[in-house]
């Protein structure tokens, strides 16, 4: 059984249809990439999964439970964390406070402290800057914070929206290394990226979205060598 099943979701913004029946699935342990151009519906898809949007038609199922109409604030405790586009760290709060906010739904203080230590180990920069205001971090550090914050809820599935956007090439590589590491540590990853090449390089499988529909899917390695993909998304 798939961990996450998205089945024929149709999402509207007012009169405008953003998703025209998107279907895909994520299996436990995979890294799945969702690629596509601006406005294809990638972010809309993620927002529908984590409850920020509700589809007019279709269903979202996570670990066998129908979460189509579950509100966003209840999704986290079910095991899905969302790293939003543009990082959305709490700029006025410290790095530490941001991370604690990620564990908002968790109760056990000792376990939260343990997770915090694991996050600090994975992101030593965040530990160095734990008392600094998040708004003063660089873009790459904010991205790490957003990821660390999401991991604080100990998700089984982490969805990431454009984690490499607006980062310097060095940080882009680092962020993708971290994503691979998160996956190795046992968290399933659903990744939305405009940097199709990088995304396909670390993903197991990928889906290509075009104007609200999945137009292509397959093994990431195959898609990397697909002529149409090369032309449209890899700039070759």
């Amino acid at each position: 059984m798939a961990m996450l099943e998205v089945n024929g979701i149709e999402v509207y913004y007012g009169m405008i249809q953003a998703l025209k029946g998107v279907t895909f699935q994520v299996d436990k342990g995979e890294i799945i990439a969702l690629i596509g151009a601006n406005g294809a519906g990638k972010t809309t898809t993620l927002h529908t999964i984590t409850g920020l949007l509700t589809p007019k038609k279709g269903t979202v199922t996570f670990e066998g439970k129908d979460i189509t109409h579950t509100p966003a604030h209840k999704i986290v405790s079910m095991g899905i964390a969302h790293v939003p586009e543009g990082r959305r760290v709490f700029a006025d709060l410290s790095v530490y406070q941001n991370l604690r906010m990620g564990a908002y739904t968790r109760k056990d203080k000792n376990e939260i402290e343990q997770t915090l230590e694991i996050i600090y180990e994975r992101f030593p920069r965040l530990k160095e800057r734990k008392n600094q205001r998040a708004g003063t971090l660089s873009g790459g550090e904010q991205q790490m914070l957003a990821m660390g914050r999401a991991l604080m809820s100990r998700p089984r599935l982490i969805v990431m929206d454009e984690p490499s956007m607006g980062l310097s090439p060095i940080f882009v590589n680092e962020i993708f290394d971290i994503i691979a590491e998160i996956s190795r540590a046992g968290t399933t990853v659903l990744l939305v990226e405009q940097n199709a090449k990088k995304a396909l390089n670390i993903a197991n499988r990928a889906y290509v979205l075009e104007t609200g529909k999945i137009v292509l899917s397959g093994d990431a390695k195959d898609l990397l060598n697909d002529d149409a993909i090369k032309k449209a998304y890899l700039g070759e």
Binding site: L52, P71, H73, V76, Q97, Y104, S153
Partner: peptide, 15 residues
């Protein structure tokens, strides 16, 4: 505090 800064992100924290 979280809601006052960013309602959307606050929801994603489970608030």
């Amino acid at each position: 505090l979280a809601v006052s800064e960013d309602k959307g992100a606050a929801q994603l924290m489970g608030i």
